[in-house]
Design a protein around this nucleic acid. Structure first.
Lengths: 186, 186
DNA sequence: TACATATTGGAGTGCTTGCTCCAGTTATGC
DNA sequence: GCATAACTGGAGCAAGCACTCCAATATGTA
């Protein structure tokens, strides 16, 4: 099905509206009526561009999950410090996508099998990346995979706490946590 | 409105059904039809005992949040190790309530103001308890409140990861994380 | 036993949901 | 500028939703 330019633009407007609604209202608030009104399109246009409402939401989730683990170019060079800074930057620079990531992927992923699978896969990939970076920077550290797991878990937990309590000094805690986990009898 | 014994028993059956459904299907799956059929009651009986569907769900959430931080009797005696073990025990012994806690309270709490408030309050109380325990056991440790925050965040993150990946050695990681956070230049 | 009140199931209500259908309009390649 | 295909909004649809209403029944009290 070839697409015209206007169609692709409308598609983008719908995705943007979906992002906004997910952030402000959550999954429950993302009804077709709300999405289409926000995007300024009729239901017919929506279904001309997406197979279902869920398809649009999953597209947004997919993008959010990808955004949390960007730039695979630096693979083999990056340090754990780089990765932690990237995580901090992700949450600081792009809080909307970050919120969607935690809200849908982490929260909703516990019930929805499809989302849970995606999140787990992305988690495993990230854990491997952290493990490799730790092995490079701290070759004598015992159990690098375990350290990676604990560091990642801590970052996720801090991110959630921060969403509940915006006053939390997220970056400071994240950096200190890296030191805690990596410099212990390292 | 005085209650008969049978009414209170029915109420308990409904709450139990709600717990089960929340665990198995999540909030989205908890429709009135599902809840009442599971509990074996008619809609009329449900609304004789609860003001709304949401009231029943919030009741379950309230209980789950309370269960994550039990036994305030030991206050002033407990060590950080005790608190970590209590958290491990909570997740190991009562995985159903634990799942509800994370699923609804942490996941749903990011959008629902009322739930978010409850979760934040319970988080603060727990953080204070951890801080006090750290000050007692590690009087020379710098920034005990920050350490408590990082330890709690890590435990939450590990719990989430474990729900996504049941193979995760949760207890081992949790204990090691305590050591990471508390014994660094302690 | 007689009475007031709580409990019961389920048919029915009004509303919202995701989605379809379609006639009219617009974009694009030749 | 014509043919073809994509795009458009919105009326309409069946299904599902939370919830109400009520007549019949069970429960507890004096």
């Amino acid at each position: 099905m070839g697409r015209y330019r206007v169609g692709l633009e409308t598609r983008e407007r719908i995705l943007e509206a979906t992002r906004e609604v997910l952030v402000e209202e959550g999954v429950e608030g993302a009804t077709l009526k709300v999405l289409t009104e926000r995007a300024g399109v009729g239901a017919g246009s929506f279904y001309n561009l997406f197979d279902s409402k869920e398809a649009a939401i999953l597209e947004v989730v997919r993008e959010a999950i990808q955004a949390v683990d960007p730039d695979p170019g630096g693979l083999g060079e990056e340090s754990p410090e780089d990765l932690v800074e990237a995580y901090i930057a992700f949450f600081t620079r792009d809080p909307i996508i970050a919120r969607i990531y935690l809200q849908l992927a982490v929260g909703g992923g516990l019930t929805d099998e499809r989302i849970a699978g995606r999140v787990l896969r992305s988690h495993r990939a990230r854990a491997e990346r952290f493990t490799a970076a730790i092995e490079r920077s701290y070759p004598d550290a015992a159990d690098p995979a375990g350290r990676a797991e604990r560091l990642l878990a801590g970052l996720t937990g801090l991110a959630i706490t921060r969403l509940l309590d915006p006053g939390l000094p997220f970056a400071t805690h994240a950096r200190q946590l890296r030191a805690d986990v990596l410099e212990n009898q390292g």
